[in-house]
Design a protein around this nucleic acid. Sequence first.
DNA 1: ATTCTTACA
DNA 2: TGTAAGGA
Length: 253
Amino acid sequence: MSSEVAGDAVAAGGARYRREEVARAAGVKVRNLRYYQERGLLPPPRREGRIAWYSDDHLARLRLIDDLLGRGYTVNGIAELLTAWEQGGGIAQLLGLRREMTRDWVQEEPVTMGLAELRELFGPAATSQDTRRAAALEYVRVDGDTVTFPSRRLLEATLTLLRQGVPLAEILDAGGFVHAQAAALADRFVALFRRHVIGPEGLEQLSATQLDHIAEAAAALRPVAGEVVAAEFARAMARRVEAEVAALLRTEQ
DNA sequence: ATTCTTACA
DNA sequence: TGTAAGGA
């Protein structure tokens, strides 16, 4: 309906949005645009007669505000952070860093199906208690009568184990264990990054060039955590399986 | 008529 | 944060 004149507006990266458009794109309510603006969180839009035009900068900023709010920051707290970053001149770099650091960690397509399809896949193996546990682990979401698995890989792994005769309850036990261990590993890597790449001062004190440097480091280190875990896990499995096979062969004799 | 602001609950 | 009323 309200598509822009294709061309310069979008191609130049200078997309303009009306109030409703930014609000929808950022997932905030139109009412709050004005509120954030009054509290100094959001720069005023460019005015053209009666209509207010918002830019990509406004959009990125709104997403950041919404995210920070969701993490429990107060409006005043966010205003302080924002002004501190602005005075350091690093607001653009900060938004870029945020994008770099949160990009591509999860690259999976969710799988959606109906309840009937779910029962067909899992058969009588799935009790409602299993479903609750799976939901608690965020392996599955149930809204109404549609079921969504955020990770196709985990769904397929579960089905493979099931077909090989592993009881669903025990798959979920193992899943919960892996889930927790993965969270601990992620905590560990993030803490390392926080301590040695970002440093003790936090992002607020950093200059624009320092933020650029951190974004580079984030890009360079992104694959490292996964590689380390994969390598160590492969080595552990090799040793463990070898020991298991040796034990089996001994008892056969 | 539409878009945005003001003001109040 | 919702919304009724009014300015442009």
